[in-house]
Design a binder for these strands. Structure first.
Lengths: 232, 232
DNA sequence: CACGATGCTGAACAAGCGTTTAACATACTG
DNA sequence: CAGTATGTTAAACGCTTGTTCAGCATCGTG
């Protein structure tokens, strides 16, 4: 056993990249030092720079590696979705489900996706744009096949469905403590999918009993963060 | 004019806290230096430490300040929601709507909430837990009033509705470029609320035309991230 | 007026950071 | 076998970081 992380027979380069992926995902780029990455990978700090040029070069390599994996997951999901639609299976297949199915349980990739979308990183914007386009196209296909109701604002509807899916990954930890199941495990995923499917098929709310329609709307509220705040 | 930021007549202490709030929200705690905060607030770096003890003390002060504002927004939303429910107004009132209504347009608070929820910060976990409890109680109330359909897993349903709402704030920038409207402005919010309300009232998908019910389910897929990866 | 708080600063410090450099193995190549 | 890439390291460098310190105004209070 070398130390710290048992990577099997990985190249040192790949080992560094994987260690960096995990640490970046857990704590963010800036909070992780080159020395920590090197220790986690069982190599010297100088080797990190030798292989990736600089810490930022390593960041870029990790980014492309992760984005590649993400797009493979999403592509798989896309096919799966169309197949399910055609065979009359479940109504929806979620990004979260694809992540849970295709990634090993302890994978740092969900957390890395969170960091990628959180920082206003152009790579995160690019991946979101691609996924939005795919969702939009899928929604159109479902409408023409009669599997989804047509909308007067399909862009917003597609974005709504996509971000609802992504929220499961972004807020994974909070959801887990709230409902008592990690939503990226089969058990949690099942509970989540049941409720989501129900809402997407029938809705969640009912129109109120029957009363005067326009009542208290647009009453102005005092802003909570006025231009000048009380000094603490 | 002093410099950089015109804060009106703020205490230096409050000015530092506000500058830190904005910088932390934009770039994250670790990527911001004490010197940058001091410059943005128009004071010397030493004064930052003098008022808050340390950079981490400043972080804590900013945290409590922000969390206080968040909870005020959410409490307002809660009241508003109940009121709307009773008067038979709109079916839903979203967290995003409350943020948009109660915060000035350029406020750093949405971005700070994003950082708080996505960095596994215990403060973020606490605020999510509180909001989840409130959502759960609101959902129960709506069910007894006949405004929401009863669910066999109300915890998950409440979490689903809450994280869908939060996703608008978390992915604000990506949504803005995807749909062409910032979802925290009145225009974008209106488009978003229309689609969300439609889905929550009637659903988004239709049951497939009518076909064999169980078809291709649980077919095993090759994991995309095998234990040992190809060295790049 | 004296005087202790209070607010605030410039200069400096130790520590930690990313990175560089020179050197050492190891292994393929002619 | 010499020679040259390749992988790897220990040690050090320069810079930035958070923080400290001594001192300067300002000001309400006895």
């Amino acid at each position: 056993m070398s130390s710290v992380v048992d990577d099997g027979d990985l190249t040192a380069r790949a080992g560094i990249r994987n260690a960096a992926l995990r640490l970046f995902a857990e704590r963010g780029h800036d909070a992780v030092t080159v020395r920590e990455i090197a220790t986690a990978a069982g190599v010297s700090p100088a080797l990190v720079v030798h292989h990736f040029g600089s810490k930022d070069g390593l960041r870029a390599a990790v980014d492309t590696h992760a984005i590649d994996a993400f797009d493979r997951v999403f592509a798989e999901l896309d096919d799966h979705d169309v197949a399910e639609m055609l065979t009359g299976g479940e109504a929806t297949t979620s990004v979260a489900e694809a992540f849970s199915r295709m990634l090993p349980p302890g994978s740092p990739l969900p957390a890395y996706l969170r960091r990628l979308l959180l920082t206003n990183d152009p790579a995160g914007a690019a991946i979101f744009g691609r996924w939005f386009g795919a969702t939009r196209r899928l929604l159109d296909a479902m409408v023409t096949l009669g599997a989804a109701r047509p909308s007067d604002d399909p862009d917003v509807l597609a974005a709504f469905l996509l971000v609802n899916d992504l929220a499961v990954i972004l807020l994974r930890n909070q959801i887990a403590t709230a409902i008592g199941d990690d939503p990226l495990t089969p058990a949690g995923l099942d509970r989540w999918a049941k409720q989501a499917t129900a809402v997407y098929l029938e809705g969640a709310f009912a129109a109120p009993p029957a009363q005067p329609p326009e009542a208290a709307l647009n009453k102005p509220n005092a802003p909570i963060e006025p231009p000048e705040e009380a000094p603490s």
